[in-house]
Simulated scan of single mutants.
Amino acid sequence: MPIIKPITDLRDNFNYIAEICHMEGEPVFITKNGHEDLVVMSHAYYEKQQAIIESYQKLAAAEKESSDPSTPKIEHAELMNKLRSRILEKKLPIK
């Protein structure tokens, strides 16, 4: 359930709003004259949201690239074999 507070709480009880943001791990929606105005969130929550957005952007770019007919394709088994070979190469001591 969203946390909604009037703007007077932000002005008069900033520490309380900050505590809610940190304890609940959710943003607090601030209203002004009964209408939505601001969203206040902890830095950790903001960073989490930014990471999610970045992941979706990367997935969209990968999907676009994979749907391009000119992009070379590789079978799953072949890819897994290449990855396993790379991992094993890094684990083997250099003589």
Rank of each mutant, 00 (worst) to 15 (best):
M1A: 02
M1L: 00
M1C: 02
P2N: 06
I3G: 01
I3M: 06
I4V: 14
K5Y: 11
P6F: 05
P6V: 06
P6D: 12
P6M: 00
I7Y: 07
L10E: 01
L10M: 13
D12T: 13
D12H: 14
D12V: 15
D12R: 10
N13P: 03
N13Y: 07
F14P: 01
F14V: 15
I17C: 05
A18Y: 12
I20L: 12
I20A: 09
I20H: 05
I20K: 05
H22I: 00
H22G: 11
M23Q: 13
E24L: 02
G25Y: 02
G25M: 01
G25N: 04
E26C: 07
P27M: 15
V28I: 02
I30W: 02
T31W: 01
K32T: 10
K32V: 09
K32N: 10
N33H: 06
G34M: 05
G34F: 04
G34A: 05
G34V: 00
H35E: 08
H35I: 01
E36V: 08
V39D: 01
V39Y: 01
V39A: 08
V40L: 09
V40A: 12
V40T: 04
V40C: 06
M41W: 04
S42P: 03
H43Q: 11
H43W: 10
H43M: 12
A44C: 09
A44D: 10
Y46V: 00
K48G: 03
K48L: 00
Q49Y: 08
Q49T: 08
Q50I: 08
I52M: 13
I53A: 01
E54P: 03
E54F: 11
E54L: 13
E54M: 13
S55T: 14
K58C: 07
K58E: 15
L59H: 12
A60P: 05
A60D: 14
A60G: 10
A60I: 13
A61K: 11
E63V: 08
E65D: 12
S66W: 15
P69D: 01
P69R: 00
S70H: 08
S70P: 02
T71W: 02
P72G: 04
K73T: 09
K73N: 03
K73G: 03
H76P: 00
H76S: 12
H76N: 13
H76K: 15
A77F: 00
A77Q: 08
E78H: 04
L79W: 07
L79Q: 03
M80T: 15
N81P: 15
N81A: 14
K82W: 13
K82D: 14
R84L: 13
S85F: 07
S85M: 04
R86P: 02
R86G: 13
R86E: 06
I87N: 01
I87Y: 11
I87Q: 08
I87T: 08
I87P: 05
L88Q: 10
E89D: 10
E89T: 04
K90Y: 14
K91R: 12
P93T: 07
K95T: 07
